[in-house]
């Protein structure tokens, strides 16, 4: 009896094609971002325990482990932001009465917003924290 041949998807399906590797890298940004969020939660927790506990947490931030984690998380966040905003115009379709707003414009507006968002946050935090110190 002539039967079609069925191949099962191998567990390493994503290794051989660059498009799949890019996809898995994009998904993998969640790992360092998750670790970063846990660290952020511990920071909030230590803050709630008082000044001494929080200062210990600040000291821990300077450990090579933490600096490395934050650098990796920063790279992951940048990659996440880039890939995420590339996909926004595919999902978000905007019309006016007369025309469909171009996907490129929607993407650029979001990218500009993200740039302002992150840079603005750093500037605001710097002003806020440095002011507290003066």
């Amino acid at each position: 009896m002539a039967e079609p041949y069925v191949k099962r998807q191998p567990a390493g399906w994503w290794l051989k094609n660059p498009a799949y590797r890019r996809y898995m890298l994009r998904e993998a940004t969640a790992l360092p971002l998750f670790a970063y969020t846990l660290l952020l939660i511990t920071g909030v927790y230590r803050l709630s325990q008082g000044e001494e506990a929080f200062t210990q947490w600040l000291v821990m931030l300077r450990s090579p482990w933490c600096v490395t984690l934050h650098v990796v998380a920063l790279a992951a966040a940048l990659l996440h932001a880039w890939t995420w905003l590339q996909l926004v115009p595919k999902i978000l379709v905007v019309h006016t009465n007369r025309l469909r707003v171009s996907g490129t414009l929607i993407k650029r507006v979001h990218q500009l917003g993200a740039l302002l968002g992150s840079v603005g946050l750093v500037v605001l935090a710097w002003l806020f924290l440095a002011q507290g110190g003066s």
């Binding site: 094609n17 498009a19 799949y20 996809y23 998904e27 996909l87 595919k90």
Partner: peptide, 8 residues
């Protein structure tokens, strides 16, 4: 899961 390769 929005792999996106279909569109490529």
């Amino acid at each position: 899961t929005f792999v996106g390769y279909c569109s490529e």
